[in-house]
């Protein structure tokens, strides 16, 4: 015997013929003797009709052509960039760094434990993403039909933040951020300017507040413009927000000898990256001789690598 609540929960599926035959018969039987549920069915039918007044948007005739142009410009940018030996070299080094985005299962298992339980001070990281291998192969003009995964050794103290992106394979890639060499200097609470996350800085203010040579390219490929700069409270770090008008990318910069570096939660304070348990994007972290950088965005890793090249070139 079906209750009204059960029937009404299934009415929408019932309307679309998505309930199996026995259940359909039971609902039919219930509707014949229940005015409330019959009324609910009529309302739902009418609602469906009313909702159909909201038509969708029609594609403009040139949409496909625009898409083709965007596809071509992406390809030509990559080709031009990789034709430059210096860029290839940089790309190769970046690839080495990008290798750390792929972590073995043992590492993820190991990271899942509370820090105090961790005995091993290091972990082996495998470079297994095909995309990274391809980039590396192109950079060195090498053909690597079935390359063994490249590996690098990481001290656990270097790992600041690790997260497995939970999107399906189109975006699936683990992300990892490594911190710069740990500072032996005592931690001192930052003095003024005590600029909170809510305040944006002008470029001049940011340079003054940074106490390091801020690298702030005004534009990152493809079409991301510098939109806002914020200081991270209590850290020697700046957050640069780029936008292309739709998507946003976050670039975090901090000096390697900074007194207080970024903490994992610093990357979570922005809706641009993660919100309500929903993952979105990729993380690329790298260092040069003075700064460490973290680039986070809803973009392909190869795109982030292109952007990282722009940042390196802007220095």
């Amino acid at each position: 015997m079906l209750r009204c609540e059960d029937v009404q929960n299934e009415l929408e599926a019932f309307l679309r013929n998505e309930v199996d035959e026995p259940q359909r018969n039971r609902i039919h039987g219930h509707l014949e003797g229940c005015q409330n549920c019959s009324q609910a069915l009529r309302q739902l039918t009418k609602l469906s009709q009313v909702l159909q007044t909201w038509n969708g948007s029609e594609p403009t005739p040139l949409m496909y052509e625009k898409l083709r142009r965007r596809m071509s410009s992406h390809e030509s940018f990559r080709s031009r960039a990789l034709a430059n030996p210096l860029v290839r070299k940089v790309a190769f080094h970046l690839t080495e760094v990008a290798a750390i985005v792929a972590v073995t299962l043992s590492l993820s298992h190991w990271l899942g434990k509370p820090a105090l339980e961790i005995q091993d001070e290091s972990a082996t990281i495998n470079l297994y993403l095909r995309e990274h291998q391809d980039v590396a192969a192109r950079a060195v003009h090498a053909s690597l039909p079935a390359p063994p995964p490249a590996r690098m050794h990481v001290d656990r103290h270097d790992i600041l933040y690790y997260e497995f992106m939970d999107d399906p394979y189109e975006f699936a890639r683990p992300g990892i951020i490594v911190r710069g060499p740990s500072s032996q200097q005592p931690v001192i609470a930052p003095e003024a300017p005590a600029i909170s996350n809510g305040h944006t800085l002008t470029l001049a203010e940011a340079r003054k507040a940074a106490n390091f040579d801020l690298v702030s390219p005004p534009r990152l490929y493809p079409g991301y413009m510098l939109d806002q700069i914020r200081r991270i409270d209590g850290r020697d770090a700046l957050h640069l927000l780029y936008t292309d008008g739709v998507n946003t990318l976050s670039l975090f910069e901090q000096p390697l000898d900074g007194q207080r570096g970024l903490e994992a939660q610093d990357f979570r304070e922005y809706a641009v990256y993660r919100n309500e348990g929903q993952a979105g994007g990729a993380i690329l972290a790298w260092r040069d001789d003075a700064l460490s950088y973290v680039l986070i965005g809803n973009a392909e890793m190869s795109q982030l690598m292109d952007m990282a090249q722009s940042v390196s070139a802007a220095k």
Binding site: F171, T243, V246, N247, T248, A271, V272, N275, Q278
Partner: peptide, 9 residues
Amino acid sequence: NLCRDRIRR
């Protein structure tokens, strides 16, 4: 995902 990103922004 793109819509969510846009709405969040």
